[in-house]
Amino acid sequence: YETDHQDYCEVCQQGGEIILCDTCPRAYHMVCLDPDMEKAPEGKWSCPHCEKE
Rank of each mutant, 00 (worst) to 15 (best):
Y1R: 12
E2V: 14
E2R: 15
E2M: 15
T3N: 08
T3L: 14
D4C: 13
D4K: 15
H5S: 15
H5A: 15
H5G: 14
Q6D: 13
Q6H: 03
D7Q: 14
Y8F: 15
E10P: 07
E10K: 10
V11C: 13
V11R: 14
C12M: 02
C12K: 01
C12Y: 00
Q13D: 14
Q13P: 01
Q14V: 09
G16N: 14
G16W: 05
G16M: 09
E17W: 03
I18C: 06
L20I: 12
C21G: 01
C21R: 01
C21W: 01
D22M: 02
D22K: 12
T23P: 00
T23S: 12
C24E: 01
C24P: 02
C24V: 00
C24G: 01
P25E: 14
P25D: 04
P25C: 12
P25H: 02
R26M: 14
R26N: 03
R26W: 01
R26Q: 12
R26I: 11
A27G: 07
A27S: 09
A27V: 09
A27R: 07
Y28N: 03
H29Y: 01
M30W: 08
M30Y: 03
V31G: 11
V31F: 10
C32T: 00
C32R: 01
L33H: 04
L33Q: 08
L33R: 05
L33N: 02
L33V: 10
D34I: 02
P35K: 03
P35M: 10
D36Y: 02
D36H: 14
D36N: 12
M37D: 03
M37L: 10
M37N: 14
K39Q: 04
K39M: 13
A40F: 12
P41K: 11
P41E: 13
P41R: 14
P41Q: 08
P41H: 03
E42A: 07
E42H: 03
E42Q: 11
G43L: 05
G43V: 03
G43C: 06
K44L: 07
K44T: 15
W45Y: 06
S46A: 07
S46M: 06
S46N: 12
S46K: 02
P48E: 07
P48D: 07
P48N: 01
P48F: 07
H49A: 04
H49I: 08
C50A: 05
C50R: 02
E51L: 04
K52N: 11
E53C: 05
E53R: 10
E53I: 04
